[in-house]
Design a protein around this nucleic acid. Structure first.
Lengths: 138, 138
DNA sequence: CCATACTGATACTAAATTAGTATCAGTATT
DNA sequence: AATACTGATACTAATTTAGTATCAGTATGG
């Protein structure tokens, strides 16, 4: 069971990379520094740009830069983009078997846990990670 | 993102089904009542039996029955069996890049969330679900 | 004004995980 | 001995995740 898939993981790390400087950073550079497959990363950066988290500049010396403050970039949002809604379980057979109380009892409990996780990921921002990174470098 | 895959979900529902009676219940019956594909369910029940959560009886009028009290069957254990360890993220590049503090900062935060989730699933037992089911039937 | 180093868009393949099926052998009951 | 079941295991299908490849277009520096 994984809460983060690779593309979310890569997205976070790419954004952290961008947070290092005000300049535009090319996908190539991010790819090198974070050891993320180049073409895969490009798609991720494009998605980030489309969703307003990064700004792209085309042409030579182009690249990407953060468009929002790290403290405004919530990991939950990134999960939403790359993995869809945070939803811990489907209500299988939603319509038919939810009359089946047993199943719903499970579902109800799962929903509770789901809320916890969502809250945690909403609390967590890129800034938290930047801050902790710096702390660790001392 | 799903915390429970279908086999865990099926396992829980199968165990709930078994909890209804002291008698042995055949896979066929469980399959019908819970609308779980028969052959798939059989594998799940066999796994539950192997892991000591259900007792199997062979031959005609055989089937499965609970081997533990519902209050002793923790959902976390079922997750462990059917989905492996609860682990929200791999530390990709574990050995090499964990020197990379940025990644580790993320990982540290994920571990915290992971602990929360694990604690919740350890708290939750089959009995909680049975109880809530009965409540709902009033 | 053009070579270069980049992004935009998109189509594609590969790998891994999850879900489901099928089959044959053996066992307890009547 | 027929029946209704489990044990074991091999297999296929579907879905999700990960990664690759390619062509078109853009900004910049020489």
């Amino acid at each position: 069971m994984k809460l983060l898939t690779k593309n979310t993981d890569y997205a976070v790390r790419a954004l952290l990379e961008l947070s290092k400087t005000e300049d535009y950073v090319s996908a190539k550079t991010v790819s090198k520094n974070q050891k993320i497959p180049y073409q895969y990363l490009r798609k991720i950066l494009q998605t980030l740009a489309k969703n307003g988290w990064a700004e792209a500049k085309e042409g030579i010396h182009g690249g990407f830069k953060l468009k929002a403050e790290p403290s405004q970039i919530r990991i939950s949002k990134l999960i939403n983009i790359f993995q869809g809604d945070i939803e811990l379980s489907d209500c299988l057979f939603r319509k038919k078997i939810c009359f089946n109380r047993k199943h719903c009892a499970l579902r109800k409990e799962l929903k509770k846990i789901e809320k916890l996780v969502v809250a945690e990921f909403e609390r967590l921002t890129l800034a938290d990670l930047v801050y902790k990174s710096k702390e660790a470098e001392i």
